[in-house]
């Protein structure tokens, strides 16, 4: 009797030891996986910079600055004290101006694109009214609007905002329409049988059900907004990261242009992370829309 109990106990502890072992193993594998992710993710751009540096040294070109020169320019652009020219220590001003335009255009695009997309997706008359026009206007490159936008909005930030808006508007609009069109029609039936009608249907069913596609559109539109800020600031505005890059070109200061590029890249990346975080929060109900 005692012997049997003893054996059972042994089996149990053996089993527990096994479980502990496998938990430890799994945890170690996960840590290794994370370390590999960081090493690869950071290592690759570092490798690119090293290659850039070697290429500049090897070719002895004077047209492209070395990473070191760009780093010095970045320091001066941020803190000043090295070149003491018109760009020294002005980074915050340029970032703020550009962000105003990027987010002015982006939020206008979202504020118009999402409701309009919901309407076009859901209401047939609106779709018949607007869809052909939108299909016609959409293929026109945003840069083609440049001359007209300068006439319409003048040589100032409004033209830039308009161009950013145009770039962000279509992805947001089209993804919202797609989102509405792909909602399971049973959800509308279920909602209407539970007493939900009219505008309540838009707020309570159409909008949340299309949210995954809307976020997709916001992410794409946000990317385009940053892309278009350079074009937008070609319209003759004196400040902004796009205008810094244009100045770098006209003054043949490639280091300045590259610094502008880096700042835009970093800002776009950071704000994209914010959107992803928001996405994960709003779409916590949907395992396949989590990142």
């Amino acid at each position: 009797m005692d012997e049997v109990a003893g054996k059972a106990l042994d089996g149990g502890t053996l089993h527990a030891a096994h479980a502990e072992e496998s938990v430890k193993l799994r945890r170690r594998r996960r840590t290794l996986d994370r370390i590999r992710g960081i090493v690869l993710g950071v290592g690759f751009p570092v490798l690119l910079v090293v290659l850039w540096d070697l290429a500049v040294r090897y070719t002895e070109t004077r047209l492209i600055p070395s990473p070191r020169e760009v780093a010095v320019m970045m320091y001066d652009f941020t803190f000043g004290g090295i070149y003491d020219d018109a760009f020294s220590g002005t980074i915050v001003t340029h970032i703020l101006r550009s962000m105003e335009r990027v987010y002015g255009g982006f939020f206008t695009a979202a504020a118009l694109g999402i409701p309009l997309g919901l309407m076009i997706g859901r209401v047939k008359v609106v779709r018949q009214l607007l869809d052909p026009t939108i299909s016609l206007l959409r293929p026109i490159p945003v840069t083609a609007w440049l001359p007209l936008s300068m006439i319409l909005f003048g040589l100032g930030p409004n033209a830039a905002i308009f161009l950013v808006f145009l770039g962000a508007f279509y992805p947001i609009l089209l993804n919202t329409i797609f989102g509405v069109r792909s909602v399971d029609p049973r959800l509308f039936e279920a909602a209407s049988m539970l007493g939900c009608t009219g505008s309540a249907m838009f707020r309570q069913i159409v909008l949340p059900a299309s949210m995954p596609a809307i976020f997709n559109g916001l992410r794409l539109g946000h990317g385009f907004a940053w892309i278009l800020i350079v074009v937008g600031e070609m319209t003759g505005v004196p400040t902004g990261l796009g205008s810094v890059i244009m100045d770098g070109r006209t003054l043949s200061r490639t280091d300045l242009a590259i610094v502008g590029m880096i700042v835009i890249g970093v800002l776009g990346f950071l704000t994209d992370r914010v959107i992803v975080k928001l996405n994960n929060r709003v779409l916590s109900w949907s395992p396949q829309h989590h990142e």
């Binding site: 049973r186 959800l187 039936e189 279920a190 049988m193 539970l194 949340p208 059900a209 109900w285």
Partner: peptide, 15 residues
């Protein structure tokens, strides 16, 4: 609301 449908594929609101 007097007639409630129960669908084969549930049709719950996923959010």
């Amino acid at each position: 609301s007097d007639r409630g449908m129960v669908f084969q594929d549930y049709a719950l609101f996923p959010w």
